[in-house]
Design a binder for these strands. Structure first.
Lengths: 250, 250
DNA sequence: CGTCTCGTTGACAATGATCAATTCATGTGG
DNA sequence: CCACATGAATTGATCATTGTCAACGAGACG
């Protein structure tokens, strides 16, 4: 399995062979596998590991006392669950799987070791952390300002671009392995309205969504309709100028 | 002026006299003052400084092409605007004042110097960064799941507790120097509805809000009504166990 | 074949938005 | 001190988006 994390970090900077080997060594450390709808970490836990999603989709979520659930963010293959929470005492939210998930548990120590030895990895992981924060801010805008149609369209744009970054799209299509109820909990809408919103997007020819497969025939059009500006994903290869001794590779 | 930042960090860990002096030296470095409704940093800028709010309120915000504005977070005295953005190429959002604001511009270099010399400050700033991220997540929950009344109540709880942490409350009261339009842009509601929501909270005896002064006669009651759980602010003095050679001070 | 989850549909209710005044507070210039 | 301008808060009336409830259909699986 190609490491999606490497693919993602290389959209920021170029990694040397050593960098890649270091990152690959992480995934061997300790792999775990969970089924769909299981918790990786629960609110109140004190996490001891940093988790890297290797395969499948997971999410951060919070449950209110009366049962309402908000999905706070999606974790796709290549995403790190929490790089630095160990400073805090306890998780203020939970992390759970949406599909069956394979992930690697990295100890804090080995991560520190690797980043100390490979400063470029440190910088790339910093970039990843900052982009995650930026995505969280964009979600605030999405929930606060956009209509249901714009909101769902925006989410689909974001997921499609993020999946493309880790090499999980094929042409204009990708898998979208979550239920409409999950999308509803993420977008703060009811499942019924998610359903109607998806139909609207279908009707406008902006998406094709059947089973678990999404096609975006005209990404630009969907972006315009959803007021999606990809700048917040910071995929502009900023770090490439740091490129020093890296071998040019395909 | 007492340094609100110090007050805040001490709700996480205990600082030595040296730590405090180091932090105070920051504020001398370069102070700037802006009026209300001015931009500190604009979307697209490449920020060169880290800004510390000394006095007044500011906010992160994003403006959509069609004019809609979302306030993404509030900056209160003692808040750091952006500790680490220098990894990214350009700001994906703007930071602007809501009231007249005094802030200190810290160079990246002097911050690095200080945190290298005073590891406890480094850890405390880490804590601050992580709490900011946690607040952003809670806003996602707030906008996604809570009704208008709960949402506004929740925001007022958060602001009250944060202000109390930096010593800007007096008993059960504090200043709330923003307009209802600002609150509307932050909560994703119309100004008219913010107005009616505030009246509802007033009518329920949960808040007294007159002019720019807010009183919360029964914080616990407001918390319950708003489903506010303060755990996400991580004010539980986790770092106190790190306390080693710090002198006991009043 | 029955059960389960997920997606879909219709009818209706409710929350919050929009529009348009009006009041209130504050500050300014004459 | 008053007339006036300005921005903010408030109100009423109406509209629209989205939620709720309930039912049904389709596919997956033991």
């Amino acid at each position: 399995m190609p490491l999606h994390l490497i693919r993602k970090l290389e959209s920021f900077t170029r990694l040397s062979v050593l960098d890649r080997q270091a990152l690959e060594s992480i995934t061997v450390e300790k792999q775990r596998r969970l089924g769909a709808r299981e918790d990786i970490i629960c609110e109140g836990d004190r996490p001891s590991h940093i988790n890297l999603i290797l395969d499948g989709w997971a999410c951060r979520y919070k449950q209110l006392e009366d049962g309402r659930r908000q999905i706070i963010s999606f974790f796709l293959p290549g995403d790190l669950c929490d790089s630095h929470v160990y400073v805090l005492q306890a998780m203020d939210h939970s992390i759970g799987t949406l599909t069956p998930v394979t992930f690697a548990e990295m100890s804090r120590e080995s991560l520190i070791q690797i980043t100390n030895r490979q400063p470029r990895i440190m910088q790339a992981l910093w970039w990843d952390t900052l982009v995650s924060a930026s995505i969280q801010r964009e979600w605030t805008v999405n929930l606060g300002q956009r209509s249901a149609t714009e909101r769902v369209g925006h989410l689909l744009c974001e997921l499609f671009v993020r999946l493309r970054t880790v090499g999980l799209t094929e042409g204009d299509g990708c898998l979208l392995p979550v239920t409409q109820a999950d999308l509803a909990d993420a977008m703060g809408l009811s499942t019924v309205h998610i359903n109607r919103t998806l139909q609207e997007l279908r009707g406008a020819g902006l998406i094709v969504l059947k089973g678990r497969h999404l096609t975006v025939p005209d990404l630009k059009a969907l972006q315009v309709a959803s007021l999606f500006n990809p700048n917040y994903l910071h995929l502009d290869h900023v770090g490439r100028h740091l490129d020093a001794g890296a071998v040019a590779e395909s």
